[in-house]
Computed example of a mutant assay.
Amino acid sequence: LFLEKNQLYYMEKFRVIESTGSKVSWNWCSFLISGYWMFYRKMYIQAILYIVANFVLGLIPFIGWIGNIALWICAGLFGNYFYLEHVKKQFCEISCADSSNRSMLIQKRGGTNIVIPIILLIIPVVIGIIIAMFFAALGTMSYYYY
């Protein structure tokens, strides 16, 4: 119930992490779309920290670019481990709840959330359209003044 999607994949990755003690296991989704994947898997704090780190590193010329690539690779290498830790933390908190509320909490805290990643994909597009329209309007207005 908690994992909802790709249960076999994550159960196998979690089993290997637990049995070997290695925190490293590759996750293509966490590598390619790190922040979105974290929001999708309801790892909100980790996602916000990742995005803030990406933003701060982006402010530093050249070194920041290298840091962003390193952060991206680390997300791919440790994504499954971070997700396992998230699952463990959630289950620890859920286990403290009343037994009648546990299944509801598992469904509420677990699973996936596609809404936030989609919204985060749409926002830059909308902002880009608004900015383009603004500059297009400015260009049209300057045409009338000549």
Rank of each mutant, 00 (worst) to 15 (best):
K13F: 10
E18M: 14
S19E: 11
S19Q: 14
G21K: 10
S22N: 10
V24R: 15
W26F: 15
W28T: 12
W28P: 06
C29D: 07
C29V: 15
S30A: 02
F31I: 07
L32M: 15
G35Q: 04
G35K: 00
G35Y: 00
G35A: 06
W37F: 15
W37G: 04
W37V: 00
M38V: 01
Y40R: 03
R41E: 04
K42Q: 05
Y44C: 00
Y44N: 08
I45E: 05
Q46V: 03
A47F: 02
L49P: 09
L49D: 15
Y50K: 12
V52P: 14
V52Q: 11
F55H: 15
G58K: 10
L59C: 13
L59H: 05
I66N: 02
N68K: 10
I69C: 07
W72R: 13
W72K: 15
W72G: 14
I73V: 12
C74K: 06
A75N: 13
A75D: 12
G79K: 03
N80M: 08
N80W: 07
Y83E: 03
L84H: 14
L84P: 09
E85W: 04
K88W: 02
K89E: 09
Q90V: 01
F91E: 07
C96R: 10
C96F: 14
C96M: 13
C96W: 09
A97G: 05
D98A: 14
D98H: 10
D98G: 07
S99Q: 15
S99Y: 11
S99R: 05
N101F: 01
L105G: 04
I106A: 01
G110K: 04
T112R: 03
T112I: 14
T112Y: 08
I114C: 07
I116S: 01
